[in-house]
């Protein structure tokens, strides 16, 4: 089955360990997501591409409980729509990004929980192409320990 990213230049794909494509301002070191044409802090119009850390912690979240209007491109109908989580995730000490969560149960989401970036199916087009989107999933504790050791 063909898998395609839902938008270009959002995350590295295909990749075993996908990363978000951010930007860093060479002048003031501000990190942003996605890369912007100029720096939101100092206005410098020369922003370098910067791969963001894969792992982070959940700062804040909600559950998207209703089908968004266009330009939403998830392809669901009112009948097939399933709520999805959206979180503000802090990646290291670099930046906070807002993204989908693989978990949509408020009981299973906690402030400060560790998350890692994954790429998951978003919708399937008529020709069978699977459209993929980035999301944050709960990080397994073992991997977390290893990551800390690696640092």
């Amino acid at each position: 089955m063909t898998q395609v990213a839902f938008a270009p230049d959002v995350f590295t794909w295909p990749a075993a360990e996908p990363r978000l494509l951010g930007g860093r301002c060479p002048a003031c070191q501000a990190v942003m997501f996605p890369r912007k044409p100029s720096c939101p802090r100092c206005g410098n119009p020369d922003i370098a591409e910067h791969l963001l850390p894969r792992r982070g912690v959940l700062v804040a979240w909600t559950i998207q409980g209703f089908l968004p209007k266009a330009p939403y491109a998830g392809g669901e109908t009112e009948e097939t729509f399933r709520p999805f989580g959206v979180g503000l995730v802090q990646l290291g000490d670099e930046v906070r990004v807002e993204a989908r969560l693989t978990e949509a149960d408020p009981e299973k989401l906690t402030f400060g929980m560790e998350l890692e970036l994954v790429v998951v199916p978003f919708r399937t087009d008529a020709d069978g192409t699977e459209i993929m989107i980035h999301a944050f999933a709960p990080a397994s504790p073992e991997i977390s320990d290893q990551a800390e050791l690696a640092e």
Binding site: F6, A7, V59, A60, Q64, V86, A99, R100
Partner: peptide, 25 residues
Amino acid sequence: YSAPSWYGAAGQFLTTKFFGIKINR
């Protein structure tokens, strides 16, 4: 709004989502 077009495609371009996230925290 100076947000990327994919932000809408992903289902995040919603004021209600922002207010949910802010008050939840």
